[in-house]
């Protein structure tokens, strides 16, 4: 059974990762962001505490990133928003991977008419303009953060279904599956024990990119009002709420936007590095 272990040996990828500057920057950024999310309640004040008299004040010792239109501390809101964006990003990708893997595995292993049907459904979702569809779903479900996650996940899964199906089809032909089949392994066992682990690499690489994409899409939804509810310090919603005051308080929309940028950047760098290391054939 040793033949079926993942293709890459563990020590070499790590060493290669450590030699990849982009990956290192991405990983350290992500560590900082996760720490920020965890420590926000300690290192930042209450994100919803208002003081109208201190409205739209520039950065100062008291408010290092200034205040917004309700006199709330922008730094506190940005810090608390970190966890929300990470939650949205991971939530979307986990959900999308679950749906995609399920569909892909079913299509790949069942084959025939089922394969056809499932892949055509996948194609339909692929053909949708993602933001427009997500907007329609979010509008119908009612705007809140969980529905945003569902809506974005519902437009993000097809890529995984395709990836998994392709891997399954490729692997099915491989010898060791034949061997396992000859040994009498059942169909579902075959799927879970043998096929899934071998499709993990491309999924993992794709997922690391998609976290960033999901954060961007979700922020866009919140920006147009189909996302987080006030006074939730969601970054997209923060840019949206403060954009009218850009002439007086440029810090208020800029700070959360930089938050989005850094988070997405972290995941994109990480995705690049992972692809280079784990999946050399899939490089750009």
């Amino acid at each position: 059974m040793a033949v079926l272990a993942p293709v890459n040996r563990p020590s070499r990828p790590l060493r290669r990762f450590l030699r990849n500057p982009g990956g290192l920057i991405g990983a350290s950024l992500l560590v900082v962001l996760i720490l920020l999310a965890l420590l926000a309640p300690i290192i930042a004040s209450d994100p919803i505490n208002q003081n109208i008299a201190e409205r739209l004040k520039p950065p100062s010792a008291q408010h290092i990133l200034g205040t917004d239109q309700l006199g709330r501390d922008v730094w506190a809101r940005v810090a608390h928003g970190t966890g929300i964006s990470l939650k949205v990003g991971f939530g979307v990708v986990v959900l999308a991977v679950l749906i995609g893997v399920l569909v892909g595995l079913l299509a790949g292993t069942l084959g025939g008419a089922w394969d056809n049907l499932l892949m055509r459904v996948t194609d339909i979702f692929f053909a949708f303009p993602s933001l427009i569809l997500a907007m329609a779903i979010a509008a119908a479900l009612g705007p809140n953060l969980n529905n945003t996650i569902i809506a974005v996940a519902l437009v993000s899964w097809p890529i995984y279904a395709r990836l998994v199906r392709a891997s399954v089809l490729a692997l099915r032909e491989r010898e060791f599956v034949e061997a396992a089949r000859a040994l009498g392994a059942g169909r579902s066992r075959l799927m879970l024990r043998h096929l899934l682990p071998n499709t993990l690499t491309p999924i993992f690489v794709q997922a690391s990119f998609d976290v960033g994409g999901a954060i961007l899409t979700a922020a866009g939804l919140s920006f147009i009002g189909f996302g987080a509810q006030p006074p939730t310090p969601e970054w997209g919603a923060m840019v949206s709420e403060t954009r009218s005051y850009i002439a007086e308080a440029i810090w208020a929309p800029t700070a959360p936007a930089i938050g989005i940028l850094l988070t997405v950047l972290a995941f994109n760098l990480l995705g690049d590095a992972l692809r280079d290391i784990l999946d050399p054939r899939g490089r750009d």
Partner: peptide, 12 residues
């Protein structure tokens, strides 16, 4: 004034 701002003020 955005409704959300009024609401946030009332809420507080």
């Amino acid at each position: 004034i955005p409704c959300a701002d009024i609401a946030a003020k009332i809420q507080s």
